[in-house]
């Protein structure tokens, strides 16, 4: 399921009037500890600009000494403000204070999941649904307008960029992938060509992967049967899989569950049908709402 908008903590490192400044190395250490712990940090400066206040609970960190500013509860659209003194505290102790404040506010802990998921570049996407039909893990879905969308980010298999290889438009990104254009690097003409070649590979990956494995195994078996060395046939199979895995960068778990070419076509057909129905439904609703009411309906 897609993640609902969750309330999070906003950590502010305050070094203005009433709070002693941190040395730049201390600031760096504190920020790094918080970031590694999954917390963002806002550093306001006089005359500088940061993003506006919202309803996220604020934890204001500072070296306040004797007279820390007063805390305030959430009221009328303004966030609750918690104040934590970090005087004489090492970076890890600051992180612990923030963790405790988050716990106390009943907010979720950050960083429990490796953020690996596809991101669609809608400037390129033609809504062909190949990604949806290819992925067996329900990562993709369609929105109310029948447009492809990533619906279940956390169902995506970490480090698997397989769907980006079936996209004929090179419209699927994995920002944490090592190579371009999948990592978000600009798409070049050659990329489109080479990526579309990979569509053929993906078709091959369907039913034909197993056929090609069988062929190679048979050839190997014939060759090896004379040698009576079955373990070499097994090695050959492993090598073939490893080769595919390396070329396409697809983890075993995904490789073994890839749909057949027939499955892909069938799912594509069904997804398109579903999207059409949704589009038709939303058009009917629009037509209904745009219809000029009759005199009877106006009560004239």
């Amino acid at each position: 399921m897609s993640h609902p908008e969750q309330e999070r903590l906003r950590v502010v490192l305050y070094e203005g009037p009433g709070s002693q400044r941190l040395a730049s190395e201390e600031r760096l250490e504190t920020m790094t500890a918080l970031l590694e712990g999954g917390y963002g940090v806002t550093r306001p400066r006089p005359g500088g600009r940061v993003s506006p206040e919202d309803e996220s609970t604020v934890v204001m960190l500072g070296r306040f000494g004797e007279t820390p500013p007063a805390e305030s509860p959430a009221e009328e659209g303004r966030p609750a403000v918690l104040v934590r003194d970090i005087a004489n505290q090492a970076s890890m102790a600051v992180l612990e204070q923030v963790e405790a404040a988050r716990d106390g506010a009943g907010l979720p802990a950050p960083g429990k999941w490796t953020p690996w998921f596809p991101v669609v570049d809608y400037d390129r996407c033609t809504n062909c649904m190949q990604c949806l039909t290819f992925c067996l893990f329900d990562v993709y879905g369609v929105d109310k307008e029948g447009q492809i969308q990533v619906s279940n980010e956390d169902k995506c298999k970490t480090s698997c960029p397989a769907c980006s290889r079936v996209c004929p438009e090179v419209a699927i990104l994995f920002p944490k992938y090592k190579k371009g254009p999948i990592n978000g690097a600009e798409v070049k003409k050659e990329d489109v060509q080479s990526e579309s070649m990979k569509v053929d590979i993906s078709a091959l990956l369907g039913g034909d992967l197993y056929a090609s494995l069988r062929d190679r195994q048979d050839t190997a078996r014939k060759r090896f049967s004379t040698e009576r060395d079955e373990s070499r046939a097994l090695l050959e199979r492993k090598r073939c899989l490893a080769e595919l895995k390396e070329t396409l960068d697809i983890p075993d778990e995904v490789l073994m569950t890839l749909p057949s070419a027939g499955d892909i076509e069938e799912r594509a057909r069904r997804a398109k049908e579903k999207a059409e129905k949704r589009r038709a439904r939303s058009k009917t609703v629009q037509d209904e709402t745009q219809r000029v009411p009759s005199q009877d309906e106006w009560g004239i």
Binding site: L35, G38, G40, R43, R45, R49, S56, G111
Partner: peptide
């Protein structure tokens, strides 16, 4: 300079973080 440091924009995007 004033600035905001965020842990991981990818995670924040997937989680629909209010930030």
């Amino acid at each position: 300079v004033a600035f905001e440091a965020v842990p991981d924009l990818c995670e924040m995007s997937a989680r629909k973080d209010p930030a």
